[in-house]
Design a protein around this nucleic acid. Structure first.
Length: 134
DNA sequence: GCCAACGTTGGC
DNA sequence: GCCAACGTTGGC
């Protein structure tokens, strides 16, 4: 089982919207690294849902319910999407500033490669963030 | 709104 | 295949 982190600008697609929709396909990824991460996801994997630009925090957890298939919004099968559904909202969002202040999280791609929109999260990091969320 | 970091494109 | 130019992302 692997852990991931997916980013979205809340005014484009927020965690609230996902809760409302119950389930969605994660489209719009146009970066090879991010796409490869999407393709590495397995059904049942969990991912943090991060709000970029506004909020700058991990706000919730989502579950991968369908593994990668061709992005219906793109030509051909170069790009992929996965289906996700909300698991739970974090009691206390974990902000980027908090993550940056935490030594054991300094190696997270969120810090070192902030532009990557789909990232892998190590189990230790996952648990640390869960602790921080209360 | 600015700008740094990064990825992609295209000329050579 | 290199690298300059350009576009996009995302933090501040």
């Amino acid at each position: 089982m692997n852990y991931w982190l997916m980013k979205s600008e809340p005014f484009v697609y927020s965690y609230d919207q996902l809760v409302k929709d119950k389930q969605t396909f994660w489209d719009g990824v146009r970066n090879y690294q991010a796409r490869n991460n999407l393709r590495a996801m397995k059904k049942g994997d969990l991912a943090f849902f991060y709000h970029s630009n506004e909020g700058l925090a991990i706000v919730g957890i989502v579950k991968i319910v369908k593994e990668a298939y061709p992005d219906p919004t793109a030509e051909g099968d170069t790009w992929s999407v996965v289906d996700i559904k909300p698991v739970k909202r974090l009691k206390n969002p974990v902000t980027l500033a908090m993550i940056k202040d935490t030594k054991s999280l300094a190696k997270m791609q969120l810090v070192t490669n902030s532009r990557l929109s789909v990232q892998k999260v190590e189990e230790k990091e996952w648990n640390t963030i869960l602790d921080m969320a209360g």
